[in-house]
Design a protein around this nucleic acid. Structure first.
Length: 807
RNA sequence: GCCGAAGUGGCGGAAUUGGCAGACGCGCUGGAUUCAAAAUCCUGUGAGGGCAACUUCGUGUGGGUUCGAGUCCCACCCUCGGCACCA
């Protein structure tokens, strides 16, 4: 006969609790400011047309666990969600299917939202934001205006990276191996007048303030590497027969005596300036044009073999030894870094060495210790200066200092710090982005529109395609473009470029704090209470771009007294990707995308959440596994059936008391340190213990349910009610452990002889090392083994082992 | 080339930071239940040898330190991520 076994109906249970949480607004951020606050943040998603795949819930579940645990610990928790909804894929889809991007966005968001709800995340849905909402981008525009007013936004005619397919300018960061980060098409260079943000002004602070935050080592390294700080000197070389100097930047001023030629970038202004002096001007011009034509890809990839030309007709004078040296032009020198010209020291720089070898230029050794007939000697730790006049005999470090002081004294050089970081190209020739709230007036130049007029709303437009000239589609809407100057009232034209997708995501964490505020981006009081974000988790792919940009904006807002902290995020962590079962990246084209909806339907959201966390090391990429999902489902089934072995006892049983305390400790710690996999393993072990014992007390079950709740919230809430505990689980509190009760009374120790495990024995935990030693030596088997040998030494590790060294 | 992370069973991964390698899960083996299957429960599961108690080998490779090394040091190899002519 069939027993009346209750069945774990995950679908019913999950729908039931999601409805209850919604109705009771269970996870709405509280107003009780007497509670300690906790701000947990995930990277808000871009609502693509494809919906979520199983990679999304990994970071969301992780911080959902943290948020739920914090609430049970008595914190007032802010755990918000929103949509980073401007962007090219939506626009491209809109173009292709002739649907308004706003409509596409709305549909995509609806899909994402219902998926997020079906997974049971404890987001505060009352604070949902959307970067394409005028009430939101009003403040994105407002921040831009402040940047503009503080001189940090400027327009510049410049050579930009231009994606041939998207027809937009790209920031350096958006170009990956010479192709567009988004669509993979070829990127070429093109001159275009662009809005730029002076992130370089913050370069130093973006490095030094990393000391204030808790980021993983690899993230710190990426930030520092990207900013690329270097210290050196700028040095003036006179150009023979003129009053002009050619200024160079070098990190090795100590090698100045070894400079045997100079190299200018093909774009260097002196080429134009001295065209009358330059005998081979036409040749140089041809070379410069070729270089300009090359995309960044070609210029770096093919540049393994160096090219260049000597500039005939002008020569430079080495300021320390007055030697006449030739000036070359080569595309391995970039106009965008340093001064656009270098002094070449082939003996001590790899690139100069290659170049000198190829073109038979002299190589003069000025740092002794290497073998320059074979390779450039670039070591700066061991060498001693030679052939170097006033700095002969010094170490590299001392020589740098002395020569830089000398140059400074003579007025022909100075100490200089350079950064690889470039200013941020901030305009896009696209429709689906925030309009830049500026107007161009022939008399007044660029004028900001009045802040009262914000938001400057995107006008309706018939076609979203960029124009043939690469201009924004907005340029075609005449009655929008033509306006009057806010300053003098004369006819003027609006800026038609829009902002990049990075804009809205650079400050969204601030808006969550005060979503309804319509007179400031967030109130001082709320910002004081909630910032900085306590824990921000996101993907490694955002650790250069997004993190740097948002830190920059935050620092600016700090400088103008809008936010109270110098850094936006106190702690940052990163998750690994979820790959397809075969170890490949999940992608639509491969057809290997796993959809969470199917997993939820079949095994439930609680199982999905658990497996997302149990699958492996949170910080590493890991392949998805169908069987792994089944394993987690099996575990939750076992949890469900624990109710059949429930006893009436309210406390912990004697047998399992230590296990309970150990598990509480392990789970509590592991949920704080991204070790969700081992925390869950500890709970599995505990459940195995319950099964082996065949019973579980009400007290044990209750605390176990709380521990499991952040991972699998629906089932645990259901079992809480079913078992008849008070109220709802989310109203209870996180269990505490007693350190003294995490220690077993008797422990098994290992007896080693000469470092090899020979015996194991059970002893009372409180034995002293001396007693352990006695016990080990006295053990019968051990006695037999060491009979006739001499005990040299005995090592005891309390609670672990005794090692007997014999001869 | 430079920077960063890693290399542990058939698989995902553990290992209180120098102290029983392989927790937990998957997969697989055997058993119980069943007419049978699924599900469930109980066993076993790094490799070799032994009827067994046991024993030898074993954390990318080679050396070293130590009573003791997955963990520390030196030299390599390989994988993944980032940067890449930045003077």
């Amino acid at each position: 006969m069939y027993t009346d076994m209750k069945h774990y109906n995950h679908n019913a249970i999950e729908k039931k609790w999601q409805a209850i949480w919604d109705e009771k607004q269970t996870f709405r951020t509280g107003d009780d400011r007497s509670k300690p606050n906790y701000y947990a943040l995930i990277e808000f998603p871009y609502p693509s047309g494809k919906g979520l795949h199983v990679g999304h819930p990994r970071p969301y579940t992780a911080l959902d666990i943290v948020a739920r645990k914090r609430r049970l610990e008595g914190y007032n928790v802010l755990f918000p969600i929103g949509w980073d909804a401007f962007g090219l894929p939506t626009e491209n889809y809109a173009i292709k299917n002739k649907i308004h991007p706003a409509e596409v966005t709305k549909n995509n968001i609806a899909r994402f939202k219902s998926q997020c709800k079906s997974i049971g995340f404890s987001f505060d849905w009352s604070r949902e934001i959307n970067t394409t909402d005028p009430n939101y981008y009003k403040w994105t525009q407002w921040i831009f205006l402040q940047l503009f007013k503080h001189g940090l936004a400027y327009k510049k005619e410049m050579s930009i990276n231009f994606c041939t397919s998207c027809k937009v300018g790209l920031a350096n960061e958006e170009v990956v191996n010479g192709t567009c980060e988004r669509c993979g098409s070829e990127v070429t260079r093109r001159m275009k007048s662009q809005w730029m943000l002076k992130i370089t002004e913050y370069a130093e602070r973006l490095i030094s303030d990393l000391a204030l935050v808790d980021y993983p080592e690899r993230v710190l390294a990426t930030q520092i590497n990207w900013i690329g700080k270097s210290e050196g000197a700028e040095v003036d070389f006179r150009i023979e027969g003129t009053d002009d100097v050619l200024r160079v930047y070098t990190t090795r001023p100590d090698t100045l005596y070894g400079a045997t030629y100079m190299v200018m970038s093909p774009e260097h202004p002196y080429i134009e300036k001295y065209k009358d002096h330059i005998e081979n001007y036409n040749e140089i011009l041809t070379y410069a044009e070729e270089a300009a034509h090359k995309s960044d890809m070609e210029r770096t990839e093919l540049a393994k073999d160096k090219t260049g030309l000597e500039i005939q007709g002008i020569k430079a004078i080495n300021p320390v030894n007055d030697e006449l040296i030739p000036i070359w032009v080569s595309d391995y020198v970039l106009m965008t870094y340093g001064t656009g010209a270098i002094m070449a020291v082939p003996a001590h720089d790899q690139r100069d060495y290659e170049f000198a070898r190829k073109f038979n230029l002299p190589i003069v050794e000025v740092v002794g210790g290497g073998n320059i007939s074979e390779a450039a000697f670039t070591d700066i730790e061991t060498g001693t200066m030679i052939n170097s006049g006033i700095i002969d005999g010094l170490s590299v470090k001392d020589a740098k200092k002395k020569i830089t002081e000398f140059l400074k004294e003579k007025g022909i050089g100075e100490f200089k710090i350079n950064y690889k970081l470039r200013d941020w190209v901030f305009s896009r020739q696209r429709y689906w982005g925030e309009p830049i709230p500026l107007v161009y007036c022939d008399d007044c130049g660029w004028v900001p529109i009045s802040e009262e007029e914000l938001p400057l709303v995107l006008p309706e437009v018939e076609f979203y395609e960029p124009t043939e000239t690469g201009e924004s589609p907005l340029a075609k809407i005449e009655d929008w473009v033509n306006t009057s100057c806010p300053s003098c009232g004369k006819p003027a034209k609006r800026e038609t470029d829009t902002m990049p997708q990075w804009a809205g995501s650079s400050w969204y964490y601030l808006r969550y704090i005060d979503t309804e505020n319509d007179h400031e981006l967030a109130s001082k009081e709320n910002l004081e209470y909630w910032t900085p974000v306590d824990w921000y988790n996101g993907g490694m792919e955002h650790t250069t771009l997004h993190l740097l940009y948002s830190r920059f904006w935050h620092k600016f807002l700090y400088d103008i007294n809008v936010v109270p902290t110098p850094e936006p995020y106190k702690k940052r962590t990163s998750h690994g990707m979820i790959l397809a079962e075969n170890g490949e990246k999940m992608s639509k084209s491969q057809g290997n995308v796993v959809n969470p909806d199917e997993v939820i339907e079949e095994s439930g959201a609680d199982t999905l959440r658990m497996f997302e966390m149990f699958i492996g090391d949170f910080e590493k990429s890991v392949p998805w596994s169908e069987n792994g999902v089944k394993g987690c489902k099996r575990f939750l089934d076992r949890v469900f059936r624990l109710t059949d072995m429930l006893t009436d006892e309210e406390g912990y049983s004697k047998d399992l008391e230590v296990n309970m305390h150990k598990t509480i400790k392990k789970v509590s710690q592991d949920f704080e340190t991204l070790k969700f996999n081992t925390g869950i393993a500890a709970m599995m072990t505990l459940v195995n213990d319950f099964y082996h014992k065949g019973s579980v007390t009400r007290g044990e079950f209750k605390d176990f349910l709380i521990l499991l709740n952040p991972v699998s919230p629906h089932l645990t809430e259901e079992l809480w009610v079913e078992t008849g505990y008070k109220g709802m689980l989310n109203q209870s509190s996180w269990p505490e452990y007693d350190e003294n009760k995490t220690i077993d009374e008797t422990i098994e120790i290992v007896i080693q002889i000469n470092g090899k495990v020979r015996r194991k024995m059970n002893i009372p935990a409180e034995l002293t090392p001396e007693e352990m030693k006695e016990a080990a030596i006295g053990e019968d088997e051990v006695k037999k083994i060491i009979e006739g040998m001499k005990i040299v030494k005995v090592i005891t590790v309390p609670g672990r082992l005794v090692n007997i060294v014999v001869r």
